[in-house]
Amino acid sequence: MTTSAPDHLPTGAARPAVLITGANRGIGRAVADELAADHHLILGGRDETALTELAAQFPSAVPFAADLTDREATAAALGRLDLADGLTGLVHSAGILVNGTVAESDPAEWTQSFEINVVAIMELTQLLLPALRVARGTVVMINSGSGYNAVPSRGAYSASKFALRGLADSLRLEEREHGVRVSSIHPGRVATDMQRELRSFEGGEYQEENYMKPATVAATVGLALRLPADASIDSLSVRPR
């Protein structure tokens, strides 16, 4: 769905603004590429240097460096952004994969999985709701097939993704009166570094051609954000063909 930017399209605040977490790699980076033609990008991640270099590659982009598990630091970083015109989109792409059976996993891994994959997402969304309401924006939570069906030896990951789906469903119901849309995107296996890590854990060969490209998932995110205002993609499962 990526298109060339029209010649008349302005840069900066005149473009609809979208904040993307995990923007410097994998699906998050692909989402940035997908939206660059017609959006002002706020590129989220932890490495400010890498984000600044990435922002320079797009027509209209700024870095947003923050540890999303640190609410005060995240709020301070958000305070340095110009969101006077609201926020058109918030794309949650950052997350972690925790492998291991329920019987053998460390409870601390479960805490970390929920802190990053659920609580940090809730807190960032909460902080940005005023700006999202102003723009009647769209929140996109990139979930997983594991958010529909649990996977053996990935109990903490599956449980966090089920919880993320519950968060999206609750937020959708609560924010409908404010005009904020909430989309839950559930990709199957995608050719990313996380997939390499998973295949290594499973003891299988990583064959990139068997998985979806990050750009394919990004196209579904673009669809959710660009959908006309009279409709919403509530939940979407996209699988390797």
Score class of each variant (00 low, 15 high):
Met1Asn: 06
Met1Thr: 10
Thr2Arg: 15
Ala5His: 04
Pro6Thr: 10
His8Gln: 11
Leu9Phe: 09
Leu9Trp: 09
Ala14Leu: 13
Ala14Val: 00
Ala14Gln: 15
Ala17Cys: 14
Ala17Pro: 02
Val18Cys: 10
Val18Phe: 01
Leu19Cys: 00
Gly22Thr: 12
Ala23Tyr: 05
Ile27Glu: 11
Gly28Trp: 05
Val31Pro: 08
Glu34Cys: 13
Ala36Ile: 09
Asp38Thr: 15
Gly44Ile: 13
Gly45Glu: 02
Arg46Glu: 00
Thr49Lys: 14
Ala50His: 01
Glu53Gly: 10
Gln57Lys: 14
Ser60Tyr: 01
Ser60Met: 00
Pro63His: 04
Ala65Lys: 10
Ala65Trp: 07
Ala65Phe: 01
Leu68Glu: 02
Arg71Glu: 13
Glu72Gly: 07
Glu72Lys: 04
Ala73Met: 03
Ala75Gln: 15
Ala77Tyr: 02
Leu81Gly: 02
Leu87Pro: 00
Val91Arg: 01
His92Val: 02
Ala94Val: 02
Gly95Ile: 03
Gly95Trp: 01
Ile96Phe: 00
Ile96Val: 11
Leu97Glu: 08
Asn99Val: 04
Gly100Leu: 04
Thr101Met: 03
Val102Gln: 08
Glu104Cys: 09
Pro107Asn: 09
Trp110Glu: 01
Val118Leu: 12
Met122Arg: 06
Met122Ile: 10
Glu123Phe: 15
Leu127Arg: 05
Leu128Glu: 04
Val134Leu: 06
Ala135Pro: 04
Arg136Trp: 06
Asn143Asp: 08
Gly145Ala: 12
Val151Phe: 12
Pro152Asp: 14
Ser153Tyr: 00
Gly155Ser: 15
Ser160Asp: 02
Lys161Thr: 11
Lys161Phe: 02
Arg165Val: 04
Gly166Asp: 07
Ser170Pro: 03
Leu171His: 06
Leu171Pro: 10
Arg172Pro: 06
Arg172Val: 02
Glu174Ala: 15
Glu174Ile: 14
Arg176Ile: 11
Arg176Gln: 11
Val180Gly: 09
Arg181Tyr: 13
Arg181Phe: 14
Ser184Leu: 13
Ile185Tyr: 01
His186Leu: 13
Pro187Ser: 04
Pro187Gly: 05
Pro187Leu: 00
Gly188Met: 02
Ala191Trp: 09
Ala191Gly: 02
Met194Val: 10
Gln195Asp: 05
Arg196Thr: 07
Arg196Asp: 05
Leu198Asp: 15
Leu198Gly: 11
Leu198Ala: 15
Arg199Tyr: 12
Ser200Lys: 15
Glu202Ile: 03
Glu202Gly: 01
Gly204His: 09
Glu205Lys: 12
Tyr206Ser: 05
Gln207Ala: 12
Gln207Cys: 08
Glu208Thr: 15
Glu209Asp: 15
Asn210Val: 11
Met212Val: 04
Thr216Phe: 01
Ala218Ile: 03
Thr220Ser: 12
Val221Leu: 05
Gly222Val: 03
Leu223Asp: 11
Leu225Ile: 12
Leu227Met: 13
Pro228Met: 04
Pro228Cys: 09
Ala231Cys: 12
Ile233Ser: 12
Ile233His: 13
Leu236Ala: 07
Leu236Met: 14
Ser237Arg: 08
Val238Ile: 13
Arg239Phe: 12
Arg239Pro: 06
